[in-house]
Nucleic acid binder design. Structure first.
Lengths: 169, 169
DNA sequence: GCGCAGTGGTTCAAGTTTTAAACAATACCT
DNA sequence: AGGTATTGTTTAAAACTTGAACCACTGCGC
């Protein structure tokens, strides 16, 4: 099978995507690091917990929601626990399980930091998009998410003959 | 000034964006790690160089193109040099400067790996988007990029009263 | 020409994060 | 019971990032 290269339009969109996501991730991380002393992922953990019933979630559910490995989550929660923003409890119904619980201190941190974070997201993104574009963004990102999750990793391997095209960043 | 929280639609779009970018970055990194033994950023360096006149670029220009710090680039190029895919040369016109140069070996690696990478991007993204959506994606990402680059980091600070809303991940 | 601010790029030290593999404990199924 | 699958942690190693300090050079004003 010959390689299905990106068209010129796709190429442009892709480059644009790479720039935007890279810049945005950096901007958010920097801001959050300054305001809350933690990177975006850690903030997301607190945020998810704050919305969960009883401010607590099973580790696996949390990892699932954030699309990260359990190992990574364990590490992150360990740090948050040291910070005092998250606690750990055994799960009553499944003794293997553990719940991460947002502490009052964690909630307070979130309340203090959230406005700044929202402002970052707003000034970097939503202030400049029309309502239609917001809908388009959700639609496109949802499509990407589903495509990846329905596992569809593209056929591996297949060393193909080179035909001078862009290598898609 | 009171916090301008995200609307429900913005909230959904944002969550969707977070999931998609996180999953996509992971998928690309995993694939590239398997095929080329390097993460996406490093591949991007090779790719950019392959498109540059004479397969070479000034370090600063490369850092600029990839939106990363010079320090980070120095580290990355050092590794690529160790791998043999990139070389370093002094800049003829400015003796402070250095050029990163794609070696034949680097080019060969790129040629070997590009099809798999393009396939990843395609199956995760472009295979599922309409041409209109490709245009929308470019437009939206371009807007975000410009918003961030025109510095506009949102007013820092401002501890605001909490009104139970989502903390935007 | 000289001094000096600015640029290009690297180095260094420190810390953070990530990964993969192995592991213990428990649940579930038959 | 017994085997398998989950849950979540641990461990050790490696990879990466950061920020500050730093050197070499340029280019400008005087």
């Amino acid at each position: 099978m010959t390689t299905r290269w990106l068209s010129a339009e796709e190429q442009r969109a892709w480059r644009s995507y790479i720039s935007a996501t890279s810049l945005l991730a950096d901007a958010i991380d920097r801001r959050l690091q300054a305001e809350a002393g933690m990177p975006h992922l850690y903030y997301s953990i607190l945020s998810r917990l704050s919305e969960a019933p009883d401010r607590r979630l099973r580790m696996t559910d949390l990892a699932e929601a954030l699309k990260i490995t359990r190992s990574r989550l364990t590490y992150a929660v360990a740090r948050l626990e040291k910070d005092g923003t998250v606690g750990r409890e055994g799960c009553p119904t499944d003794r293997r399980g553990h719940m991460a619980v947002l502490t009052d201190e964690g909630m307070a941190l979130l309340e203090r930091v959230a406005p700044a974070h929202v402002e970052t997201v707003r000034t970097a993104v939503f202030d400049h998009l029309t309502p239609e574009q917001v809908g388009q963004l959700e639609e496109i990102c949802g499509t990407i998410t589903r495509a990846i999750q329905s596992g569809d990793p593209g056929t591996p391997g297949e060393d193909l003959p080179w035909r001078r095209r862009s290598c898609s960043s």
